[in-house]
Design a protein around this nucleic acid. Sequence first.
DNA 1: TGGGCTGTTGCAAG
DNA 2: ACTTGCAACAGCCC
Length: 274
Amino acid sequence: MPELPEVETVRRFLASRLPGERIGSIEALLPRVIRGCAPEAFRAALEGRSFAAAERKGKYLVLRTDGPQSLLVHLRMTGRLTWQGDKGAPLPPYARVVFRLSGGTLVYGDVRTLGELRLIPSAGKTGVPGFDALGPDAIGPEFTVEGLARALRGSRRAVKAFLLDQANVAGIGNIYADEALFRAGILPSRPACGVTPEEASRLRDAVRGVMEESLSRGGTTFRDFRDAEGKKGGNAPALQVYGRGGLPCPKCGTRLEFSKIAGRGTRFCPRCQN
DNA sequence: TGGGCTGTTGCAAG
DNA sequence: ACTTGCAACAGCCC
């Protein structure tokens, strides 16, 4: 569900509420979503601490505390972080871990339970491979045309598979990979190393553009995504190709095609993309 | 009804 | 070394 714009939407809200909130108690309703340590150790490290900041890199959220350990969250497919200002409010469906805070309740919910919560050191390397190996954040200044072009040259995979690899660019998922390749006019099946420098420049701008525009609308709710207040994002109507396989291309009217690339459903216009 | 689809990622196997 | 495929899980839709 959540790619960079959705995670960033959640982060922005949490950044407005969490700092200064004291963690009174934690209930692990489904302990296995806590990875890397026992639930007791998780509680011991966080209870009594206060949240200090909400940060993001790629699709990971880092909820910093005033203690030596902070909280790393990955929502994977269906994870949700929900803020409830009313401490007596009923928990949302599929609540898995509940943080009782001084001024409200933070709930980690997850239907498919693929998401994860971890403790990480508040400073230094986290030891979480997927996190430590993240490439440049897709909306950050470190995501440059030069860096992208260099990485593309070194990969023989399909350019879509390349974009989905978080070590190359952090934050792109299946929706925005399809949208960015459509905007850049590049077929998703082409080898990354065959993308020209001009195309790499267009691709960088397209990735940035689709992410920023979606973010300005609160993210894409295709099915499950909800922000930290439980609301849907407004970007779905702006999608050009994702979820539109078989329908006319919004630019030229050609029937959009659907295929599988890197094991993921992929939509593209055979005329506008080449 | 059953099977295949779903926004992610790590690991195993080629 | 690099790349692909599947498992983890539960719900939804044909």
